[in-house]
Design a binder for these strands. Sequence first.
RNA 1: GCCCGGGUGGCGUAAUUGGUAGCCGCAACAGACUUAAAAUUUGUCGACCGCAAGGUCAUGUGGGUUCGAUUCCCACCCCGGGCACCA
Length: 983
Amino acid sequence: MITLMKNSGEKVNPKALKLPAYDHSKIEPKWQKLWEKQKFDQAREDPKKKKFYGLIEFPYPSGEGLHVGHIRSNTAMDIIARKRRREGYEVLFPIGWDAFGLPTENYAIKTGIQPAIVTKKNTDTFRRQLKALGFSFDWSREIDTTDPKYYKWTQWIFLQFFKKGLAYKKKMAINWCPKDMIGLANEEVVNGCCERCGTPVEKREKEQWMLAITKYADRLDRDLDEVDFLEKIKIQQRNWIGKSEGAEIGFKFVIPALDGSRGHAPTGIQDHIANFVLLHGFTATPDDDFHPWLKKKLENLGYKVQAPKLPNTEKPTENEQVEFVLDNVKFDENTVLLGHSLGSVVALKVLEKLNKKIAGLVTVGGFIDTNFKDHDRNFAERFGWDFDFNKIKLNVSFIRVLHDKNDVAITDGQAKRLATALGVNVIERMANEGHFCAKEEPAIFEVIIPSIKVFTTRPDTLFGVTYLVLAPEHQLVKELLPNVQNKKEVEDYISKTKKETDIERADASKEKTGVELKGIKVINPANNEELPVWIADYVLVDYGTGAVMAVPAHDERDKQFAQKYSLPTKEIILADKKEIITEFGKSVTTYKLRDWVFSRQRYWGEPIPVVHCEQCGIVPVPEKDLPVKLPKVKNYQPTQTGESPLASIGKWVNTKCPKCKGKARRETDTMPQWAGSSWYYLRYADSKNSKVFAGKDRLKYWTPVDWYNGGMEHTTLHLLYSRFWHKFLFDLGLVPTKEPYQKRTSHGLILAEGGAKMSKSRDNIVSPDDIVKIVGADSLRLYEMFMGPFDQPIVWNTDNIAGVRRFIERVWKMREKVVQKMDEKIDDFVLINKIIHKAIKKVSDDIEAMRFNTAISALMITFNELEKFRVVDIEQYGVFLKLLAPFAPHVTEELWASLNHKNSIHTTEWPMYDPVLAIDSQTTIVVQINGKMRGSFTVPIDISKEELENRARTLPESAKWLEGKSIMKIVVVPNKLVNFVIK
RNA sequence: GCCCGGGUGGCGUAAUUGGUAGCCGCAACAGACUUAAAAUUUGUCGACCGCAAGGUCAUGUGGGUUCGAUUCCCACCCCGGGCACCA
C-alpha cells in the first residue's frame, strides 16, 4: 500500500529541515546529564498518587565488570518503570550492590588488597557502566550490603531471629579440604575435590548457626496462592519446599529378648516410642488422681489419658463395667486407657470389643485382682482362653519388666506369657526404683513398646512392603545395635557411609548399598508379617522419619535394591488409602525443606553479632553496639582450624560480655551472601534511615514490590529466603504485608557466542562499553529486547545489532518528513491513525506481558507502514516516538525536542488507543478444501456465516476444486475461514 | 535418576493459543546510485517438480484425536537449566 499525500496542508517544507546525522555519542551523554539534574527518576512518596515498585536483582559488583547479559533484566524493568511513570504512577526503581561474597574475598586472598577497596573500585565501574545505558534508576537510594550503615540492620534482623529462638547452633557437616585446611563452599567442591588443589574433600562436623526456615514451610508454600509469580516459578518454589501429604505408619519391632539380663535397655528409646502398655500390680484407689505421676508422664508424652470410674452401682458385673467404659470413654489413636479401678480383664475386654486401635493400656491388678476372685489366677492362663488377642489393637512391641522390690505377684514367666499373647518382646528388666509406685502398692510391671514411624506418600501400597530401610545415621540404629547379631558389619557400613561426600551420596546413578540388621524384625501392621530391617545410604536421615518402607513391586529403586540383595518382592494389592490411614497410620504432612545453615567461616560477610561469655554463654550484642564492624585483617585466608580469619585478630575477638562484663569472645562466623539480599528491597523504601531498617510509613507506601524480575537461578533459594525473612518481619509487625513481592518474573540467560556462559575465565565476555561506543545505548537496549523471547536463554550475536541500529537511523531520518498538524479528515491521516492505534494497543499489551521482541517487531512494522507515506503528521510521529521512548530513551528524547517540545518525552502521558480504531474493519477469509488453503477473499468483519459460505462457493479457486465432487461438510469459522470437506 | 524449559528456513525468531506456517530482523544473492568501495536504496530468499499457471513435501521422530495440529494426547530422540536419590 503506497499512498502519497495529495493535499496535506503542510506548513513546513520537509526539505527545509535537515537534521545532522544521528550521532549517539553526542546525544546519549547529553540527555543522561540533563535527566540526572532534573531528578525525574527520583521516587517521592506522594499519597495522592498510586505507586509502582519495580525491582531487579541488585548486581554483584565483580571485577569482571558488567557484561551484556547483566542488563537484560535492567532494560526490561526500565521499560516497565518508564511506562508506569507515564501512566501516572509514582515509581520506585532502585539500584544497589550485593557486594559481600566469595569472588571478592578470593581476590583479596590472592592480592592482599582489602575487599572493601576492591568493592569500591568495582561498584564505581558498574555505576558508570549502568549510567551510560540510560536506566532510570533512583540513584539517590543506592545501597551497598557491605556498608556498615546497611549491614547494621542485617545484623539487627539476625538478632530478632535469635531472640525469637529461630537462630540456633547445631553441629553440621561442612566440606573440608585436608590439604588447604579450610572449609569449602559447595561451589568450591568440584567432583568431590577441592577446586584449588584437587584434594578429595572430607566432611567435618562443625557447630553452625542455623535459621529455622522450616517453621515457615507451610506458609511459604500456602501463600504462593496469593501472589502473581510465573507458574514455573511457583512450581520451583513448591518443589523446593516439598510439601508432601502422606501417612505415618507405625511398624512394631521384634527384637530378640535379652533374657533376664539387666541394664541393656536401648537408651533414649522413648523418643521413638509410638505407644506402650504399662501393666502393674494391684491398686484400687477410687479417686481421679490415681497414679498422678503416671498420668502426668503419659500426658507429657502427648497421650490422652482416660481413667474411667466404675458404674455407680453395687457390685457391677464385669460386663456392666465393660459397657460402662465403652459408653463413657472416647477412644482414639492417642488414648491411653488407664486402669483406675478396672481390672485388667475388664480393660482387655474393653479393647476386644472396641475393635479400634488405641495408644496404650494401663491395667491395675488384673492378674491378682482380689475384687474379682474368679480371675484371681495365673493371668497368662486366663488370657490364653478368654481373649482374642487379634482383636486387641495395641501398637506395642516391647515390654519392659519392672521388678517389685518385694518380688511379688508377677514372675518373669508370667511377663513372657503376656508378651507372647500380645505379640511383643520383653526387652528389659529393671528393679523398681520405687518412684513408680502407686499410692498403696508398688508397681510390678512396666511394658514399653516402641515402634518406628515410617512416612509414606503411598500408604495404600502397605500390603506390598517386604522390608524396611533406615538411614545409617538414624538414632534408633545406635539404640538397636546391642541387639543386632551382625554388629560389626553394621558398624563398618555406618563408618563407610560417613566418609562419603554429599555428592557421592547424592549420585543417583551409583549402585545402592546397604546392610541388614540381623535379628531385628518389624511387623507389617497391615498383615502382621515379619519383615527384615536394613540400613542403606540412600535413605536420608532428615527427610520424613529417616525410614522407608520398601515396596519393590511398586517402586523402581526398591526393586533394584531388592534384586541386589535377593530380598523378596510381593505383588501389591492396593489398599484403600483412607482405611489404611484410619486403621494403622495417621495422616501427616512433611516438607523437604531443611533449616538454613547460616554460618560461614569467611571474612567477607556480616559478622554474626553475638559474643560467647564464659559465664553467660551466648549473649547477643546489644542493639546500641551495632553494627559489629568487620575489622581490617592482614590475611584473608581462612584459619587452619576451620575458623574465619576473624578468629586470629585477638584485639577484635576478645571482648567483654555485655551482660556480666566478664571475659568473652566474639563470634567469628560471618553470614552468607544471602543475608544482605534477603531484605534489601525494604531498605530501598527508606535507604537513609538511621533509626530503623525502614520507617513504617515508607514501607506502607512502597511495599510490597509490585514487580520483581531476575534470573531463573534465583527463583528458588533467594526468593524463598527473602520471603522467609519478610514473613518473620511481618510476624514482628515490622512490615505491612505477608509477602514481599506481588509479582515475580524471570529472564533467560544471555550466553556467549558458542552457547557457553559468559565469564572472564572463558574470555568470552561482551562488554556493554564496547557496544555503547560503536552503536550507542539505545541500539544495545533495543537489541537486548529484540533478540528473542525474554524468558528464554539466548546466544549473543553482535552482528544482529545492525538491524536495530538501522531502524533507529531510519526513525531519525523520518523526522525530515514531519509536517505540522494535518487536517484529520484527509484519507492518509485516517489511514495512519489506524496504524498508530493498532501499534499503541500491541506495544502496550506486549510490554505488560514482557513480549518485548514482538513489541519492537510491531514498532518496526508500524514504521515500515509510515515510511510509505510522503509526509508524516507531527502528532502521529510524536505518538510513534512516545511508544519507542521506553526502549530507546535518548534518541526519542532528542527527536521529541526537535519537534519543539519543551517537556521531556519521558514525562508525557502514555498513549491511549481507541479500541474501534485498533481493530481491523476488514478481514481476510481463507478458503480451505479438506483443510488445505486454496484461496482467500476479503470481507468486512463480522459478516454472517451464510454470506461467508456463499462467497466461498463462488470463488473461482474453490469452484475448481469442488467441481464434480460431493461436499460432505462445510465448516465456517466467522472472521477466519470456510472449509469444504469433499470426497 | 528426578524436576523445569526448549526443538520451526543458512541464523535469531513470529504465528491472534486448534484455523493462511515462516511476520520482524540478520546473513546471502541480484539491480540502482558511485570512477570504485562502504553507506543507502529496490528486489529475491524453506525444499522439491514445473517455462509458467500451479502442485507436492515441510515446524525433532513415530503414532493418535480433529473438517483442520507448530499448537491437544501417547511413546520416543536430542539440546539447555536446576537438583537435596524425598520414600
